[in-house]
């Protein structure tokens, strides 16, 4: 095989994740089971080759916890809102396709932002332009340009949170330079 070797440190997060999956599935976090899982994970990672995901080498747990709190809050309110719209608005619904340009050019961050946005009801990623890192979102119940602007602000705020959690240093510096805006 002509593919290049991946350094162990790059695939370490994947191996750790696979070991955790193994332990969770057996509902057994004993040492023996985890060791066997680690062997399996190593074999899987090396034989079933995937292109490595380029992580940024930063991870800030302190920002993660408020992010999760915000995420759950939005999940609950937005789910209720979709329910309400389905009951009351029904077929008289106005939507929009909104383009949002993100700051970061890292594939990983764009993917993470798109994922987080997609999980919150009311917005959906239709297309991604990787060269300009623009997300095209389909949004529920957008009646005016103000609503679209609010969505853009919200998505960029989500991205800012993700950059603070696991963005590269350059992105973080750019975010700081932009000034403290939420």
């Amino acid at each position: 095989m002509s593919r290049q070797r991946i350094p162990l440190i790059t695939e370490l997060p994947l191996v750790v994740w696979l070991v955790l999956v193994w332990g969770a599935l057996w509902q057994d976090f004993g040492v023996g089971n985890l060791a066997f899982g680690a062997i399996l994970a190593y074999v899987v990672v090396n034989f079933f080759y995937l292109p490595p995901v380029e992580l940024t080498g930063r991870f800030n747990v302190l920002w993660l916890i408020p992010f999760l709190g915000r995420f759950f809050l939005k999940l609950v309110t937005a789910s209720a809102e979709v329910f309400w719209l389905a009951l009351t608005r029904g077929s008289r619904l106005r939507n929009a396709v909104v383009a949002v340009t993100l700051r970061s050019h890292s594939d990983f961050l764009v993917t993470a932002t798109g994922h987080a946005i997609s999980l919150i009801p009311g917005s959906l990623v239709l297309e991604v332009d990787r060269s300009t890192s623009t997300l095209y979102l389909h949004c529920l119940n957008v009646a005016s340009a103000d609503d679209a602007a609010a969505i853009r602000r919200d998505v960029r705020a989500t991205e800012a949170w993700l950059i603070r959690i696991m963005g590269s240093r350059d992105d973080l510096a750019a975010l700081r330079a932009e000034g403290v805006r939420r």
């Binding site: 929009a96 383009a99 332009d129 005016s144 340009a145």
Partner: peptide
């Protein structure tokens, strides 16, 4: 006709 805005269309 249900879209108030479509920024993907011109792209």
């Amino acid at each position: 006709d249900l879209l108030t805005l479509d920024e993907l269309d011109d792209v």
